[in-house]
Design a protein around this nucleic acid. Structure first.
Lengths: 210, 210, 210, 210
DNA sequence: CATGAATGAGTGTTCATTCAT
DNA sequence: AATGAATGAACACTCATTCAT
């Protein structure tokens, strides 16, 4: 009762955590299908197979639940993206790894990703703030990579902010397409990463035209 | 009442149309500020300065109103985009014109654009269908341009669907940035068009690397 | 529509006021029977014969409704109590008039009085504040009368605050008895006033013992 | 288990009783602070430092708990009040003793008294019945004293029921004042008793006016 | 044509109570 | 005996829509 190592207590805690996760999983399914506003707490508890009261035993309400879902996704994305050292052995490979890891996170959390990509902005100020921080972070990372690339003579000098925004938008749209519009079980992460990077780096023109 | 040439009727109809437009304008303002779900019919009628009943005299409800708003935006976008003849005098200029016209539509209808970009997907199946048709159309146009470009030796051969999706996502994200995150009174349409196209066509690599 | 004297508008407003009053009346009945906490908004709307929505069209909620009820009762009581001029022609008669008017207010608003006497303190801070202000006012009035009475040689010098409190408590208990415990259709206001005053002024001892 | 003299059982029972008392004490604190309706069972178990289940092991619920609290207070008050023999040596002293003992009970059980005085009537029929029996008992005692007093030529003949009610109300209000509105650590019981009695017996008029 | 009072299904949330462990 | 996770009926409140005037 007093020690965390107490068998009975730790088992109970493990059960609690498991139950919480079940509810989170159910919520992801529900939110990804109906969207935050259209989904009701009733939908979540039905999907989770619990009673009304139990839901509020594990979460403080609909909004905190959504916020936690969002937070988890954001953390995973942030963890997937690492600063690329422009003077490293193979910066392009590192870039590809970053993109590949993001692809993994997105397709490992399909429903969650759908929720975030589709309709999160505007849900409420706190949600907006969280998302803006995520996009700000990604923007920074990509801008940094662009500036480093230019500095090390790897890429052209471009309007870094606008191009970073474009790259992020490109990724989101591609993800959305493969998640929702023409769902793919799991795309070849290296293929997606390569296409994105190839498009981003080389553009569409024939080399001779450049 | 039966003849369009009836003076009384046509004047009444003109008034009706004007009133409808006022409501639509008010709705755009309200939806862009609060989002579809958070905005209430009360917000719209308050903004339009009409009574509850009058609203339902002009629209069948909140959702049909939103659908009409969406439809209008979609039509404007579709009108702005024209097929580029790859064998024409200056296909690149035509492409730039297309992008420039889209920029114009978006910034001529800022609020409406915000609503559409931010959180339309998932509002309801009919809305989704409309949006998917729009994106399908844009996708087709861009894919066509890519294939034509490659056929006429103008651009590299690329994975047309994925690159088209990427280009559309890039545009959306840039628009969203300039509409919401760091609002710009009205960006230089040719500058935006050039940046987008330059990025899309030439990529990031230095020419020498290509 | 623009003028308050517009027949149509004023009729509508009269209807609105009437409806409001109906709801207030129903609420008084419900609160006096069940008490604030036990009574539900559903009870009120059932008693008023209106729909859920209509209730919230006229009142901002359960608490504001209760507060308004309370406020109305308090105002009536305050209006009934007037400062007694100790140098007036007949201060005792004025005192009797005061008590009589309070008796009238209480028995003209039986249910409301029951609500206030029985269980209002502790409902919530705002309610408590309102009631404390009422009792403070009554306390002041009675204390003033006691001090004036002593100054003008009419009454003995007494511990004014404690005796004022005692008098107020005595009245409340008597009211409560005749309202709830052994309800009287309408007590003889002068009899009640006289008994109270006689008891208050002369006490229980035989004159000879004084 | 069957015999009270069984050591184990009696120790267990003592523990049980002690635990019960702890819960009762916690409940008094909680109810006096928040009121019956606003206080939750959770508040009580938190204050008592026990688990949810344990609470229901000792009490059948929130209402029975409250009823028991009330019952205990009522018993103490009833024990404090004894019939005054009008032909005894010093009936006035006995009266003073009665009032003094009630003052003691009230201030020895401040929180409990606050709960009872403030908002018990109307909690539910059973509670009301209990309170009405208490007030009936007090009313009887006071009425009896009044009648005896008149019979033995000690006091004036008064409308006994109404005056008894007034006296009870006066006491309650004074208690409430000293418990809640301007709390006094512990009033001088003889002073309070004397003031009450003096006011009750002699009234406010100057002796010469009597 | 215009109004706004009326509606009621639906929402998120609370909390006294039960019961398997 | 003690626990605390689970329950679900009940609550206050919202809002898109209708319709008598």
């Amino acid at each position: 009762m007093t020690l965390a190592s107490d068998g009975r207590t730790s088992r109970a805690e493990a059960q609690r955590t498991a139950r919480r996760q079940e509810i989170l999983d159910a919520a992801v399914r529900v939110f990804s299908e109906h969207g935050y506003h259209t989904a009701s707490v009733s939908d979540v508890i039905d999907a989770a197979g619990i009673s009304r009261g139990t839901f509020y035993l594990y979460f403080d309400g609909k909004e905190p639940l959504f916020l936690e879902l969002l937070e988890r996704f954001i953390l995973r994305i942030r963890d997937a993206v690492r600063v690329v050292d422009p003077d490293g052995a193979n910066p392009t490979a590192e870039l590809l790894e970053n993109v590949g890891r993001v692809v993994d996170v997105v397709f490992d959390n399909r429903d969650l990703a759908v929720v975030v990509f589709r309709q999160s902005m505007g849900v409420n100020p706190e949600v907006d703030a969280k998302l803006l921080r995520l996009y700000g972070f990604l923007q920074e990372m990509v801008e940094g990579a662009l500036i480093n690339g230019a500095a090390s003579g790897l890429t052209r000098e471009v309007n870094a902010p606008i191009v970073a925004t474009a790259l992020i938008g490109a990724m989101k749209e591609i993800f959305y397409r493969y998640l929702v519009i023409e769902p793919v079980a799991r795309p070849d992460r290296t293929a997606v990463a390569h296409t994105l990077l190839d498009f981003g780096l080389r553009g569409l023109l024939l080399s001779s035209d450049a």
